[in-house]
Every structure is written in structure tokens, then in C-alpha cells.
Simulated scan of single mutants.
Amino acid sequence: MPRYEYRCRTCGETFEMNRPMAESGAPASCPAGHDDTVKLLSAVAVGGTAAAPAPSGGGCCGGGGCC
């Protein structure tokens, strides 16, 4: 189940909740009970693969002898 991060606009506390993706936009109360919260954007990648390796050889300064 995905984990979402929220921030309370009333007290400023940041907290996380596990909830289904279908409920990601639903209101969330902070641990202190305040209802004025906002979902934060996550920097975690959702899919894909690791970064591709850097190309080697050829091109300027990549082994092409232009330097």
C-alpha cells in the first residue's frame, strides 16, 4: 500500500499515512486532530529502471581525440 506524506497547515506537523491510491486525495487529519492538511509531493520514483550508464567513447572529449 502506498505511503503518502501530508503537512498540517494549522500546527505545521508533517506526517505520513498508508492508504490505497484511490484514497490519496481524500482528506487526512493530522495526529493532533486538525483537518486543514495538504498532501506533499513525493520525490520517490514510481516506476522505471535505474539511470542508464554514461556513454563511452566517441564524440568530443569522450575518447574522440578532439581535446
Score class of each variant (00 low, 15 high):
V44G: 00
C11N: 06
A54K: 03
V38P: 11
M21V: 12
C61V: 07
P31H: 08
P53G: 03
T14M: 12
A26M: 14
G65S: 05
M21C: 09
T10D: 08
H34A: 03
G12V: 04
P20S: 13
A32D: 13
A28S: 14
M17R: 13
M17I: 15
V46Q: 02
V38L: 15
G25L: 09
G25V: 09
V44S: 00
V44L: 00
A45F: 01
P55L: 01
N18I: 15
S42R: 11
P2C: 05
E23R: 12
R19K: 14
M1R: 13
G47I: 02
P53W: 01
P27Q: 07
S42A: 13
E13I: 14
D35L: 12
S56D: 02
C30S: 06
R19Y: 07
V44I: 07
R9M: 10
S29A: 15
C11E: 10
G48I: 00
G65C: 04
C60R: 14
R19V: 07
S29M: 14
P2Y: 07
G33T: 07
A52Q: 02
C30Q: 06
C61K: 09
S56N: 04
G58H: 02
Y4I: 08
C11S: 09
A52H: 02
A43S: 14
C66K: 07
F15V: 09
R9C: 04
S42E: 11
P55S: 01
R7G: 04
G63K: 01
C66D: 08
G62K: 01
A45M: 07
C8W: 02
G58F: 03
G65P: 00
A52W: 01
